[in-house]
Nucleic acid binder design. Structure first.
Lengths: 201, 201
DNA sequence: ACACATCTGGACCGATCGGTAGTAAAGTCG
DNA sequence: CGACTTTACTACCGATCGGTCCAGATGTGT
């Protein structure tokens, strides 16, 4: 699914487009959209501006691709969690995954979805909108999964799937901020434990 | 404590320094430190760059003063919550206050402390550090208050004040992100209800 | 060998960044 | 009325912003 597109004509690309995107993702993750300059990006990617523009379009499109890569990589715990057998396990897997990803020693602390573009600056509005949509979509998917849990009976009929989903999402966002504050995985896992105490039995 | 310093000599200032700071705070709140340019600021404040520099120093110092004003104004619910009689009431007042401030119709959605400078950009590092310190300090104060609650007996002896404080802070940060996502006060108050279900009895 | 298509590197673009200098204006003092 | 102090406004600073252009390099197909 990644670098399968072959270049037949013309001078071949001299850099690994996948690794370059990985580097760009890390920079956006750490510094946010507004805080990242083209120079930051090309330095990290090890290519020049022209190569970046030829390969990715522009800063905004590069950001979109970085977000997509983030969703399929570091944030893939989210979709994986949805496949857990019960709602309770979904919720726990979701939060544990958030802790793990936001505190990984090999990546920036925190969550790209949160610190990428929370604020609403002038030129960062498209990036902002991308992340808002994604965050909302993640909540919707969680809600749908919990609705299914009610149908399947592993959540009681008087449980509110939307409310539970929003609570889990809120906790995950809070974890992301705390991770950016420097809290470690053990402390954050305690927070997950506490949050799950309120889970309906 | 605010505009009590009187100018005796020289040309009097033609703008209200308090209101100018209020405007600057709102801009930083909405756009974050990196996303706010001097032009954004001076436009909102209705003054020129020179006046801004004469009155506030530079962008970074203006940000610090804006944060201070935010802490004493919109975020004053935090210190007010600490004065509630019981730990449970402290927690609830803290979270309800967060909901109210992050969803106020007269102010940007979300929390300046969170979207002001979550990411770690190059030139935004001082702003970032200011907010990290503040967020950590708020948690520490909450923890100290809960420790007192254990001493006073309104929290059981086996309750962990630090853990509870971190959980409440995490929920508050999550609420801030959700507010920036567009969730309203009613929805967020439901989240507070859910979070407080886990409160030790 | 040749045309062709693509990529690379660096010079360069206008606009904007945060910040400063110099001068005119507007007050309070004697 | 000056002398003095502070502010306001305009013009301007070098640096950097995101983005473009173009000549040269490097591959493919014939």
């Amino acid at each position: 699914m990644s670098g399968s597109q072959r270049t037949v004509f013309g001078r071949p690309r001299e850099f690994d487009i996948d690794e370059a995107l990985e580097r760009a993702m890390q920079v956006f993750w750490a510094r946010g959209y507004d805080g990242t300059s083209l120079t930051d990006l090309t330095d990290a990617m090890g290519i020049t501006k022209s190569s970046m523009y030829a390969a990715f379009g522009n800063k905004e499109q590069l950001f979109r691709k970085a977000v997509q890569r983030y969703a399929e990589g570091p944030a893939s715990y989210a979709t994986r969690a949805l496949r857990e057998p019960t709602a309770r396990e979904v919720a726990e897997a979701f939060l544990r995954g958030a802790v793990q990803t936001t505190t990984s020693p090999n990546a920036p602390a925190g969550c790209l979805s949160v610190q990428g573009a929370l604020a609403l600056s002038e030129q960062g509005r498209p990036a902002h909108d991308v992340l808002v949509d994604w965050r909302i979509d993640a909540g919707d998917q969680l809600e749908a999964r919990f609705r299914r849990a009610v149908e399947e009976g592993d959540l009681s009929g008087d449980a509110d799937p939307g409310r539970l989903a929003r609570f889990i999402m809120t906790t995950a966002f809070g974890i992301a901020v705390q991770a950016a504050n420097g809290l470690g995985p053990d402390t954050l896992d305690e927070i997950v434990d506490t949050a799950l105490l309120s889970w309906p039995t």
